[in-house]
């Protein structure tokens, strides 16, 4: 589904990714772990297509096509989804309006009929209760005044509504207490599907107790320095990143 080869990327004239190779098949959940500054979030932004994240070498193929040729929204419409580490607040835009516009732009792309307001409310209602998202949260401007947990739940709601084929979860556990973490993880697990792949980026092993990955990769200095099964996460938890990366863990 996703094939990353020798990926180099630069942000603000600084080389952050220095040759990443990663292959993810349909239905697999991969975790990327690594200390701060190792390039985890940069990889997430490069996949989503954010401006200013310049690929200087290498390639990313998604479903056989060159992903780097696609604009941000084209990637989204082709099924790429990024759950943001810091979900963006958008004052003045009501949550429901935002979600409906997003869902409809994907439906339009797929040649499906766009939802009207009533149909959309029904569609959302099925998904929002599992994630403990109230109607009030949806009426409010996107993420404005939301707690850390609410923001992350809102990201997973978007993921549930947009039904991506490939989801990147960027430090979805950061800033969450254990209850909020469970809610979010349950939401993600519900979305696991033989046709949907995920890349779970995290600093801590804790998240992986709840979202159990098929593979774990360790990122350091913009390179994958070790790959393994889910047991690698536990090993890291015990040993720290230092042994693998040659530096002290952050």
């Amino acid at each position: 589904m996703l094939e990353i080869k020798n990926l180099h990327a630069r942000v603000d004239d600084r080389d952050v990714l220095n040759g990443i190779d990663l292959s993810i098949s349909a239905g697999e959940v991969h975790a990327i772990m690594g200390p701060n500054g190792s390039g985890k979030s940069t990889l997430a932004y490069v996949l989503a297509g954010r401006d200013g994240y310049e690929v200087t070498e290498g390639s990313i193929h998604y479903q056989g096509n060159d992903l780097l040729d696609l604009a941000i929204e084209e990637r989204a419409r082709e099924g790429i989804f990024l759950a943001f580490q810091y979900p963006v607040e958008i004052p003045g835009v009501a949550g429901t309006t935002f979600l409906r516009t997003a869902v409809n732009s994907l439906r339009k792309h797929r040649g499906e009929k766009e939802f009207d307001a009533m149909q959309f409310v029904k569609y959302v209602r099925e998904k929002q209760s599992e994630l403990n998202i109230t109607d009030d949260m949806l009426r409010r401007p996107v993420n404005v005044g939301f707690s850390g947990g609410e923001k992350k739940r809102n990201e997973i709601l978007q993921m549930a509504l947009l039904e991506p084929k490939f989801a990147v979860l960027d430090e979805t556990d950061s800033g969450l207490d254990i209850d909020a973490l469970k809610t979010v993880a349950d939401g993600v697990n519900t979305l696991r599907d033989p046709n949907r792949s995920m890349l779970v980026i995290t600093h801590y092993q804790r998240l992986l107790d709840y979202i159990v990955p098929d593979f774990v990769h360790v990122l350091a200095h913009g390179r994958i320095v070790k790959s393994g099964g889910k047991e690698l996460a536990l090993e890291l938890e015990k040993e720290g990143y230092g042994a693998l990366t040659g530096t002290q863990a952050a």
Binding site: A71, I90, V93, A102, H109
Partner: peptide, 25 residues
């Protein structure tokens, strides 16, 4: 820039994303 990126990452094209933010403003 970040708000535009967020909206586009959810499938809104660049023009649509700008319009949404201008209306909101």
């Amino acid at each position: 820039e970040l708000e535009l990126f967020y909206l586009r990452s959810r499938g809104l094209d660049a023009e649509e994303a700008r319009q949404v933010l201008i209306r909101a403003f």
